[in-house]
Amino acid sequence: MKNFLPYLKTLAFFEGLRDAEILGLAERFPRRRLADGEVLYEVGDPAGSAFVVVRGQIEVLSEGGQRISVAAAGDVVGLHELFRDEPRNLTTRAIGETGLFEIDRAVFAEACEARQPLDVVLVDRVAHFLAVKLRQMDGILEEVDPHVHAPVAVHAPKVDALEFKSHDRSADKVAPRPVKKRRWWQRKRTADDELQDRITELADKAGLTEIDSVKVRYGSEQPLHNNPSSMIRRG
C-alpha cells in the first residue's frame, strides 16, 4: 500500500491527513473493483456502506434512472446512508473500470465507539465530507429556489418551529463565482484526470515502464512528484 501513498494523498478524502493515517485507513477499507457499467448498489437495496472512489468514476442515478451526477476519484458516494435504515434511494454504477474503498456500515458504527486510535480519523473524515456536501446543498437550495432556505441548525429542539420566510425574488441575483487558478499539478483530481489515467493504463498494457508512461503523457520526462498519480501501476 505504501506504493500508492503519493496517489492517495492527491485524493480529497485523504486531504490533510498524515501519511500513517492515510495508510492506516486505506489498509482498513475493503477494496472493491467494478467493471464498466457494473452496478454498485441500486434503489431498494438495504442501506449499507459508503464508498470512496479511488479510481475511475461512479455515476449516480435517480429512482427514475436519470443521471444525477458523476463522482470522480476522491469523492464519496452513499455517505449519508451510513446513518439511515431506509432502503437506498439512488442507484450507482461504474463508468469504466473503477476502484473503490468501502466504508462498511457496521465498521463505521464501531468506529463511532472510538475503540481504536484511527477511529477518530475515520469519523472526522466522514463528518468533514458531510459538512462539505451540506454546505453545497445549502447553496443549491438557495439557487434552485430562493424562497427556500436550508435550515442552519441540526440539533434545534423543535425543527418544525424554524421559520422559513419568502422574500422578493427579484432581489435574488447569483453572484459570479470567483475563479481560483491553480497550476496543473495543484489541481484536485477531476474527471479529466481520468483520461490521463486511461493513457497510463494503456501504457501499462503495452508493457511500458512507469517512466515511459509519463513520457507518453507529456512528451518528455516530468518529475514524478509533480504528478503522483502517474506512479500508480494498474493490476
Binding site: 446512508e81 469519523v123 458531510l130
Partner: peptide, 11 residues
C-alpha cells in the same frame, strides 16, 4: 455527522 447526514438525506 449523524445530524448532518439526516439533513443531507432529506435534501
Amino acid at each position: 455527522a449523524r445530524g448532518m447526514a439526516y439533513r443531507l438525506n432529506r435534501a
